[in-house]
Design a binder for these strands. Structure first.
Length: 209
DNA sequence: TGTGAGAGCCGTTTACATCA
DNA sequence: TTGATGTAAACGGCTCTCAC
């Protein structure tokens, strides 16, 4: 059983009147090659024997839609079959499939756009949430720093500046010595002895080239 | 390798239906 | 009745594939 048989099964099930008409028209042999592809406008080609375009009937469209759902591409044999079943020119069937593929593609693009837009909107909302969170955390840090400074100032009245607790707090609050003066990375190149009690100027002179 | 035919895609045109 | 507008059928041009 091929796709065509599947289609016919569906059609007989859902559209018995169309199916009986189709079965009656089976067996019509048509030439497979098209002759004279180009036609001037107004020459027709609709196969209706009427000048101008005519909309396809509801039954024709239904059958074409069902066929399209089964398979979007149209092989020659299938096209001939559908055309003979529906009393249309093969060219009409081909054109209908072409236009239907275009509509399908357009709809697909529309759906993809909607999906992407929805995802984009979600991302924007998430970004706003994260930015708010960053602001909130920054405020917390600011408050914490104020609190530390307040505690430091209070502790000045009770202990000397060289007490272990205050030096620890200073380390927390102040940037590293080299980094604070724009010498980031130099500490890796220059050796600074840990317990060397030379003053700052002497230290600079020692490493001055 | 060149050529002709068939088929698909894309953009456009045309015929027709609908509505204000 | 008529003009604007939307939709679907059809066309024309281009490209690709395949057989010869």
């Amino acid at each position: 059983m091929n796709l065509y048989d599947d289609q016919m099964g569906l059609i007989s099930q859902y559209y018995p009147e169309i199916y009986s008409q189709v079965v009656q028209e089976q067996g019509v042999e048509k030439p497979r090659r098209r002759s004279g592809r180009k036609k001037k406008k107004g020459e027709g080609g609709s196969g209706n024997g009427v000048a101008g375009k005519r909309k396809l009937s509801q039954e024709q469209v239904t059958m074409l839609e069902m066929s399209f759902v089964n398979e979007q591409k149209l092989e020659s044999e299938r096209k001939e079959n559908i055309a003979s079943q529906l009393g249309l020119e093969p060219r009409q069937v081909a054109v209908w499939f072409q236009n239907r593929r275009a509509r399908w593609k357009s709809k697909k693009l529309e759906d993809e756009y909607s999906k992407l837009k929805s995802e984009h909107d979600c991302t924007v909302v998430e970004k706003c949430k994260l930015e708010n969170e960053v602001l909130r955390l920054k405020e917390q840090v600011c408050e914490a720093e104020k609190e530390i400074r307040r505690l430091l100032e209070r502790s000045d009245g009770f202990s000397s500046i060289n007490s272990p607790s205050s030096s620890f707090l200073m380390e927390v609050l102040d940037p590293p010595f080299l980094g604070g003066f724009g010498f980031e990375g130099l500490e890796k190149v220059l050796y600074v002895p840990q317990n060397d009690y030379i003053n700052g100027l002497e230290w600079v002179n020692r490493y001055d080239m």
